[in-house]
């Protein structure tokens, strides 16, 4: 069994079937790209995997743990969902940084809130007030150092104390990527991370994503950048009308295209890129 397995996932909005039995698998450290025309269900798929939407049926198993089983998620408590969400990170098309916090605080906020929960647990075992204080200070420092290291990784160390309104789109998206990484998700998802950017800013973001690729980082990337998908992916799937129309290595999908729909899609995209 692969690291992440999605089996026969279905999702409808009212009468519109958006996902019609999606199957996919990703190994640890792999990069999976999802391509497909707009409206084919890519965003919905990522949102179901992040529990922002609830799948109607199907399965999702991550690292041996069953996260989705039929419509189980619909009955789960907010707290269970929250724990499940922490397995995944999601980078949105529109960044969604928190405007009132500095760049660094955007990164540290969620880990610090989780630290509060861990501190409650720790307090049960440690009664010594002085030790508690030291523990908390050390943990806070660790979060801060982690986040500074992440900012360095996305090349924005000097922006740590800036506010989101002072950043360019490319910088905002790099902060959003660092923010998602701060929680050390098992799988990092991207939903068209460069679609909201001016063309001259997409390069810096794609470069950062490429730089993340290593044996421990597993990524699922929805993208319209075919060149990028070709070079960064271990595996590509092409979605059309809520099903996986074609899948394989970048070589197979882009080099030896089988499906007519994918051929049409690719020629359409390359036409546009040529313009």
């Amino acid at each position: 069994m692969a690291y992440l397995e999605v089996q026969n996932l279905n999702k409808s909005f009212g009468k519109t079937e958006v996902l019609k039995g999606i199957d996919l698998s990703v190994e640890k450290g792999e990069v999976l790209s999802i391509i497909g025309s707009s409206g084919s269900g890519k965003t919905t798929l990522l949102r179901c995997m992040n529990f922002l939407e609830f799948a109607d049926s199907g399965k999702m198993i991550l690292d041996g743990e069953t996260l989705i089983d039929g419509d189980s998620v619909k009955k789960e408590s907010e707290n269970e969902l929250r724990k499940k969400r922490l397995n995944f990170g999601l980078v949105f098309q529109s960044f969604n940084l928190f405007p009132q916090y500095s760049v660094l605080k955007n990164l540290t906020l969620a880990p610090t809130l989780l630290l509060k929960e861990r501190f409650k647990e720790y307090k049960k075992t440690e009664k010594d007030g002085q030790k508690r204080k030291e523990w908390l200070a050390a943990e806070k420092k660790a979060i801060n150092d982690d986040c500074l290291a992440l900012l360095d990784r996305v090349g924005l160390t000097e922006k740590a104390n800036s506010y989101p309104c002072e950043l360019s789109g490319g910088q905002s998206q790099r902060v959003a990527i660092a923010r998602a990484l701060a929680l050390k998700p098992k799988i990092l998802c991207f939903d068209e991370p460069t679609s909201a950017l001016d063309p001259e800013l997409t390069g810096e973001v794609l470069k950062v994503i490429k730089g993340l690729k290593n044996k421990d980082t597993t990524m699922i990337i929805v993208t319209h950048e075919m060149g990028f998908a070709k070079s960064v992916s271990d595996k590509v799937i092409f979605m059309a009308d809520g099903i996986v129309e074609e899948e394989g290595t970048p070589k197979e999908v882009f080099g030896a295209t089988k499906s007519e729909k994918l051929k049409a899609f690719l020629s359409n995209v390359t036409d546009k890129e040529g313009e």
């Binding site: 907010e78 707290n79 724990k83 969400r85 949105f92 969604n96 928190f98 906020l109 989780l114």
Partner: peptide, 22 residues
Amino acid sequence: SRGQFEAGKVLGMTKSQIFFKV
């Protein structure tokens, strides 16, 4: 924007944390 709530959710925040912190 809905994205602010969703960003909070994806970062594992509780509903009240999202409301009060974000």
